[in-house]
Design a protein around this nucleic acid. Structure first.
Lengths: 216, 216
DNA sequence: TTTCATGTTGACTGTATAGTCGATCCGACG
DNA sequence: CGTCGGATCGACTATACAGTCAACATGAAA
């Protein structure tokens, strides 16, 4: 019995498999942007993805697993979006502002993404918790440096998350008037009581200019 | 054919009818506190309410009508809660603070109510729009008086609503630490840029003391 | 006691959805 | 070009749910 190269075999379908899975994932994301996971049916997903029902179950165990996968996808888009901040900005308040700015800009340029974020913020997913922890780390650092009036990290996180999420809802429903982002960022800093304790480069971050060390 | 007193007849069952309807309504509110209306089934409602399925359809046309009725109920609880502010407080910022304070206090003392409010805030119901308009009226007055740094009424409303809702979520998930309400109210005022432009009695309202005119 | 409007019941029908499974397709490899 | 394993398909069963309806319960009035 000639042993066939199983490893090779395993690779064969991988591209097709990945493509189909991506189709289902994208369709799921699109649908989850406009309804909660509890209201999402397998039939709706497979129709939107253009695949057969069995194919869905070949890739996912259930709708909730699909929802989790979409959550992971969202989380990755966040990491991708926030990585530059981690690398370039050493100041926690600057990182906070940068993050908030990226957040709102993405919401303005990608409505589906915005809706998806808003929907995902309801049921506490793994993704949501990750964002929150990331945010809390920055806030704790800022508090430790005596940069903020708000001392309770959880309260500070709720303030930031609540403002950004609701402003995102506003963007979805009513669009983004001129200077919205700048005014929103100012309001976030004021709410935390971090407005007057900035560092030199903060205005650049607020305006979306290249930050510290980027200008030779 | 002796005309029977139809008006009287109509009154006969009213008490029973009202009681049953209230049962269904309460069960619906309880269930809608923990899942979105799209995920609520008639069977679940009638089981929770302890009535037969036909009874549900005798009182309501559909789940969405029940959800609307629950929304109206919530709206009434708001009116009830906010009426004293309208009457006693002439200052728009004081009314804003009073409203926010009542809001958070109620959330702390009534978890089901809090969950229901959070859930209802997702799908824009009639109730949600009413609250927003009410809030925007106060904010517009405050802006007109030059009391706030934030000039965009919609942005201001999103800031307040976002903060309060997310803080409510925090209360639901992690409880309310000491001084949470006071710190939250301070943060709201700072966010709007209304912290330094207060009037004399504002501290009383912030602390939940009887407001202006109540001390003879 | 009888009558009758109002309200309640739960069995019933039809439909939508979940989840399964053997048939089929596809493409690499010998 | 035939074989074979991984991927896809869609018909099928079982179940959950929506919505209906004829029968029954209740209690005030005659």
């Amino acid at each position: 019995m000639a042993k066939i190269d199983l490893v090779r075999r395993a690779e064969i379908g991988r591209e097709k498999r990945a493509r189909t899975r991506a189709q289902i994932l994208e369709a799921g994301a699109l649908l989850l942007a406009e309804r909660p996971p509890e209201a999402l049916t397998v039939d709706a997903v497979v129709e939107a993805a253009g695949v057969a029902k069995g194919t869905f179950y070949y890739h996912f165990l259930s709708i909730s697993e699909l929802a989790a996968a979409v959550g992971v996808m969202l989380g990755e888009s966040f990491d991708e979006m926030l990585t530059p901040a981690k690398l370039e900005l050493s100041d926690p308040v600057a990182r906070l502002v940068f993050m908030s700015r990226q957040f709102l800009q993405k919401a303005i340029s990608d409505q589906v993404w915005a809706r998806l974020v808003v929907q995902s913020s309801q049921s506490p997913t793994e993704f949501g918790r990750g964002i929150r922890e990331h945010l809390k780390a920055d806030l704790a650092e800022a508090i430790a440096q005596g940069r903020m009036v708000v001392k309770d990290v959880d309260l500070a996180a709720d303030i930031v998350i609540g403002m950004l999420l609701q402003i995102m809802r506003g963007i979805i429903e009513r669009g983004a008037p001129r200077d919205l982002i700048r005014e929103a960022l100012d309001a976030v800093l004021r709410a935390l009581g971090a407005a007057e304790t900035g560092f030199d480069g903060l205005d650049d971050v607020l305006d979306g200019q290249p930050g510290e060390g980027a200008t030779p």
